[in-house]
Every structure is written in structure tokens, then in C-alpha cells.
């Protein structure tokens, strides 16, 4: 298939960016979206032009590195998917595909389609852990955990930190990301010990970094590659409320 691509090109963090049009031809519908980008880049390099910079690594939908906003949707036109798992069969021959970087104040563009998501690391550093050191922990089966809770914690822990939730949210809110981590630990006895501090610190960090507020539009849940549920946000609100009044 042939495609017309409109890609955001931006030389550096402070440079002015613009959309540049490219044509790619004879793309197999079995190719992945990033393989299509590879083909484009190979052509650009062969022509002596600079390839399009975009983040990607594992290419199996788990590292959370890939981050393209494709035709108005993070990770493109499919559900429960990352860009690297998106295949060209989801596009029509001759289609125009607009590719933009994640847009949010805390995610500044580094180059072209690559953004800096270290804000997420900072939020985790604010409390996204159980404060145990290596060694000296009880036996793994010492505390039984209700299977339902373990499963819910796993659902939340599946977050890959890609930032699609922020990219999709009209407010660039990071609530789904933060609440997934808060929920995972809130549901497990190991995490409950410092639950109050954790939720207050992580939310405070999220606010300071300049993410928007949640207005419950649920766009985040709709685009999340791991289908993290917005009930995690409600759980975090609840945890936060309890932490504040206790």
C-alpha cells in the first residue's frame, strides 16, 4: 500500500517544529507501523536526509517506549495496543496519516516525535515503591493475599508507563498512570503500610510537574494499551481523601 505521511519534525527542544509530508510506497499490510517508519528512515538516509527520530525499543508492546500520536489517537487506530504492535492492515491504501508527538507540558519534545517522559520517573520516585531494603523480608507465603486483590493489583501493575493516557487526555492529566501505581500498592498488604504517605506524595509531585486535572472524560482508559481501568482513579481519589482526613 502507499501512504501519505504528515510527520512533525522538530530539530531540538527549543526549535520551531513543522509538519513535513512524505510518501511511502509498497508497504506490506503485514508490516508493523514502526517497520513502516524504518522503511521511511532507510529511504531518508539513502537520500542523505536525516531520519525521523522516534522512541521505540522492545517492539513487543511491553517496554512502553513507543509513543506516536497517530491520526488523533495515541498508538493509533486500534484498541489495547502500542504503536509497535499496530500493523499496517489497520490503514487504507492511499490514506493520509498524521503523526505527532505526545503533547503535554511535562513531556517536552526532544526531537521530532521523541518526548521526555522523565516526569513519570519523578512521580514514581515520589513514592511509587514499598520501602523495604534487600534482605530481611518475611517468607513470600507469610501473608496470604486474597486472589481478587492480587488480580486487581496485577491489572493495575500492568501499566507500561508509555504516557498514552496523558497524550489522550484533553487536560494532559496523569491520573491514570499515578492511580495505577497507587492502586497496585493500596491493594496489597505490603503496600498498605505506607499507603497514606504514598498517595499524598505522588499526587503532590504530579501536580507540581504540571499535569492537568482529571475531569473524568475517560479518554485515558480508552487508549491505554494495557486497558488500565479508571476505577483505579476512583480508588486513588478515595485513598487520597482518607489520607487527607486521617
Amino acid at each position: 500500500m502507499d501512504l501519505k505521511l504528515k510527520i512533525w519534525r522538530q530539530q531540538g527542544p527549543d526549535a520551531q517544529g513543522k509538519f513535513v509530508e512524505y510518501l511511502v510506497q509498497n508497504i506490506s499490510s503485514d508490516a508493523s507501523f514502526l517497520e513502516m517508519m524504518d522503511i521511511l528512515n532507510e529511504e531518508l538516509v539513502a537520500k542523505g536526509e536525516e531520519p525521523v527520530a522516534f522512541d521505540h525499543d522492545c517492539r513487543e508492546g511491553i517496554c512502553g517506549m513507543c509513543s506516536l500520536y497517530i491520526n488523533g489517537r495515541p498508538h493509533g487506530p486500534d484498541t489495547a495496543i502500542t504503536t509497535c504492535q499496530l500493523h499496517m492492515r489497520k490503514f487504507k491504501d492511499g490514506e493520509t496519516v498524521v503523526i505527532e508527538p505526545w503533547r503535554a507540558k511535562p513531556f517536552p519534545v526532544i526531537k521530532d516525535l521523541m518526548v521526555d517522559r522523565s516526569a513519570f520517573d519523578e512521580i514514581i520516585q515520589a513514592g511509587g515503591y514499598v520501602s523495604v531494603n534487600t534482605g530481611g523480608v518475611p517468607d513470600a507465603n507469610a501473608i496470604p493475599i486474597k486472589k481478587e486483590n492480587a488480580d486487581l493489583a496485577m491489572d493495575a501493575a500492568a501499566c507500561i508507563g508509555c504516557g498514552a493516557c496523558v497524550a489522550a487526555c484533553k487536560n494532559a492529566s496523569a491520573m491514570l498512570f499515578v492511580s495505577a501505581k497507587v492502586s497496585q500498592f493500596a491493594l496489597l498488604p505490603q503496600g498498605r503500610v505506607e499507603a497514606n504517605n504514598r498517595v499524598e506524595n505522588m499526587v503532590a509531585k504530579m501536580d507540581v510537574l504540571g499535569f492537568g486535572n482529571c475531569t473524568n472524560t475517560y479518554a485515558c482508559e480508552a487508549v491505554c494499551p494495557k486497558e488500565i481501568s479508571i476505577t483505579n482513579i476512583a480508588r486513588m481519589n478515595r485513598e487520597f481523601f482518607v489520607a487527607k482526613i486521617s
Binding site: V132, V137, P138, A150, D151, M154, A157, Q184, Q190, G191
Partner: peptide
């Protein structure tokens, strides 16, 4: 043991 203590589900 270590991973369970860290909250690995």
C-alpha cells in the same frame, strides 16, 4: 520473598 515484599503481584 524479596519481590513479594516489594509488592510484585
Amino acid at each position: 520473598d524479596q519481590c513479594v515484599a516489594q509488592g510484585v503481584p
